[in-house]
């Protein structure tokens, strides 16, 4: 069994027979030992993305502010309609915030191994550290959106609810779901670029079937299908929780969360087993 102090015996598929518990223990030690690296790497992504721009970090606010402003204007002119009892601008803004979080989590985790190829080909530090660093930026972007949602909630003069304050942690299920899908895709994207294209198509058009922009049918085949769509379940339930402090469908929410935890445990263990192989084929 390898330890974080670089004492290791490399053999073919040497991580394959390691237990789930040992794999998580390894990751836990890695995260504790390399916490500074995670932070420095997060700063690196953060700085690098705006290093060559004039407005720099201001873009982090401008980019999410523009669509929110557009939706507010459309609402004011009565162009944004919805069959939900929730103000349509709030419906769209919250839906988009969750969708952006989910899609960014997929994209950054899926692309992290290729993006960090030069480092990963030189240093054998655990790949999970890079995933965490890159998710840090996704979380930061989400926090900016959270602030905009708070502003919008006050602007719309809705009655204050304590669930508003929980908005920052509401990101967890969707961020984890995105990360699980992204990490799983990253196992294959290094071999075939087709995976990246398929994910891109899904992320471009998936928002229309996940209750992001408009409510989905309340009955019929479509309704049955969406009641099992984990993204829809999370977006719809969390949105209801924020605005009305109630769960829309607690049963499906819990089942989905249970499924997500199982998927997370599985994917992280597989990441541990496959990481050396991924590094080799990068």
């Amino acid at each position: 069994m390898e330890n974080i102090e670089h004492s290791v015996t490399y053999t073919k598929d040497y991580r394959l027979k390691v237990s789930y518990l040992k794999a998580y223990e390894f990751y836990l030690h890695a995260i504790i030992k390399y916490k500074q690296f995670i932070f420095v790497n997060f700063l690196k992504y953060f700085k690098a993305s705006y290093e060559q721009s004039f407005l720099r970090i201001t873009w982090k606010i401008i980019l999410p502010l523009v669509p929110v402003s557009v939706y507010v204007i459309l609402q004011e002119f009565g162009l944004l309609r919805s069959n939900s009892i929730m103000p349509s601008v709030l419906y769209v803004v919250i839906g988009m915030a969750f969708w952006q979080l989910f899609s960014s989590a997929i994209t950054v985790t899926m692309n992290t191994p290729s993006k960090e190829k030069a480092v990963l080909k030189k240093v054998t530090i655990p790949l999970i550290l890079f995933y965490i660093s890159s998710l840090g930026e996704v979380f930061f972007d989400y926090l900016i959106r959270v602030v905009l949602i708070w502003v919008l909630l006050f602007y719309l003069k809705l009655e204050f609810s304590l669930t508003w304050l929980l908005l920052p942690i509401f990101c967890l299920p969707l961020a984890l779901l995105g990360a699980v899908i992204g990490i799983f895709c990253s196992f294959f994207v290094i071999f075939f670029n087709d995976v990246r294209n398929i994910v891109d198509i899904f992320l471009k058009y998936g928002l229309f079937v996940c209750g992001v922009l408009f409510p989905l049918p309340g009955s019929g085949l479509f309704h049955t299908f969406f009641s099992y769509n984990p993204i829809y379940i999370y977006i719809e339930n969390l949105r209801q929780l924020i605005v009305f402090s109630t769960f829309n469908d607690v049963e499906h929410f819990l089942y989905t969360t249970l499924g997500l935890i199982v998927a997370l445990i599985f994917v992280l263990k597989k990441l541990y087993s496959l990481e050396p192989r991924m590094r080799e084929y990068l």
Partner: peptide, 28 residues
């Protein structure tokens, strides 16, 4: 350095490894 895995046999490594390979690589 653990970048490639063997198809057969083993490599036992103890300690911190540094590789002076393509010195400029890996810098942002």
């Amino acid at each position: 350095s653990g970048i490639h895995l063997p198809d057969a046999g083993s490599i036992e490594v103890s300690g911190h490894i540094e590789a002076l390979i393509e010195l400029g690589a890996g810098f942002h």
